[in-house]
Design a protein around this nucleic acid. Sequence first.
RNA 1: GGUGCGGUAGCCAAGUGGUAAGGCCGAGCUCUGCAAAAGCUCUAUCGGCGGUUCGAUUCCGCCCCGCACCUCCA
Length: 480
Amino acid sequence: MPIRLHDSLTRSPRELKPAQPDGIFRFYNCGPTVYAPAHIGNFRTFVVNDVIRRLLELEFGADKVKHVRNLTDVDDKTIKRARDEGRPLADVTKQWTEKFHADCAALNCLPPHIEPTATGHIKEQVDMIDVLMQKGNAYRAADGSVYFKVSSFDGYGALSRVKERELQVGSALSGKSQAADADEKEDVSDFALWKAYKPDDGANAWESPWGRGRPGWHIECSAMSKKHLGDTIDLHTGGVNLLFPHHENELAQSQCCNGTTFAHHWYHSEHLLVDGKKMSKSLGNLYTLDELVAKGFSPMALRYALLMGHPRKQLNFSLDSMHAAESALKSIYRTASYFCKAAGKSIGDLYSTECLSSPSWLTFEKTRDSLWDDINTPEAFGRFFLTLAIADSNRGETTNHSLDEFNAFSKVLYVLGIDLRPQDLKLEAPAAITALAEKRWAAKQSKDWAGADALRKELTAAGWNMKDGKDGYTLEPLKK
RNA sequence: GGUGCGGUAGCCAAGUGGUAAGGCCGAGCUCUGCAAAAGCUCUAUCGGCGGUUCGAUUCCGCCCCGCACCUCCA
């Protein structure tokens, strides 16, 4: 079944498919700038892109998808951070790259096949700029910086409709934003390909035919994409804020340099809002994964919460949605155990790769349809829960389809990237707690209700809940 | 000023030209010595005003409100 995905350039849903004869799907996803911990809004984009990656793998085969996501490890922000902390740039970016990787892993995001860095591709960037200079799409300004000449590319603005915007420049914008480095540029909309060295850059400069300096932000992605995926890619993604100017500029550079279509498909996910506003430090509504974990929430709940809205619509995040996510996950887990029971499998078996090769979706077909149709995750979850409710009422009864259904269920979990295994780990209670529980169980058996109640109070005070069953009990820590 | 996107139950959020998925919360019931857990049930007429239509939340127009982008913030 073809995957349909909204294309930002044509503003319509289009089928995703590899354009080149080798059948490899080339997927480029703009990655993070590594100067601080990524916030949950950043992760919305990465989680959505992870779903796209998983979708592509199921559709085309895991070996037919090439996923590249870069790390921006040199720019104004990273340099400033290093300068402020008095550390080498590489130290700072290494620290935050590792943090980013840890967070991604916690959120169950598959690592990209290639994760190139800007500093690791200086030569490739210089080479591209060189071609643009030769073709007359770029010029060197008096200060030694090289700029892309926007007027040299007719297609400029197609992606973000920037031309309409240009007409109004100067009205509400007062021109202060352009003033910054407009002095050296021929035109305010021209943008830097190579930035001449400034003392603030410290040790972070490289040699080029135009003098010492560092690459501009946009050329990074063009160069890394070209190096690892070739002149034309199948899909280029990022957050909406990258639409302009980043992607518009990338498109211009790459097409002028390579003389061919840059990306067949563009996709942008919308922003995460907190309390109705975009997250920002000044509003104090910015969350990181660590902060949520410190509040007692699981990373998986965040992943779920981030997928509860349509990826192309702004999603309003709140702590309530984290509570909702934890509860929903719990109920998915419960039903999962029914599927496992019916198929004679364990929760861990849900994550074996064999399940993915099973062709059928059975009762999960509609859930699949929602995902394949422009990754409509909220609709998918709606349909998913409907199916779970039916399975719930069957309570793990074994049928002819039990194994197939188990596999189909596993595939849904795979595409959504929901890992139930953390919930499967039963926490071992300390010996003292177990002793109390044993005592209470004995009291209960001898119908000493008062004694049993007193012991329950002690357990509660110690932070544990004792769940009585028919033939025994289980202990679980109370929620914070 | 321009561009784009929204306003659906207490909260979050899908969707459709024919009388509104789902999740959370809440309420009631069942079960249970207690406590949980679990199961069942219940909870909206879709920002406002017009128009098109046999019929609109879904199409068109106007208005009100919100958000984002145009500032190297996913």
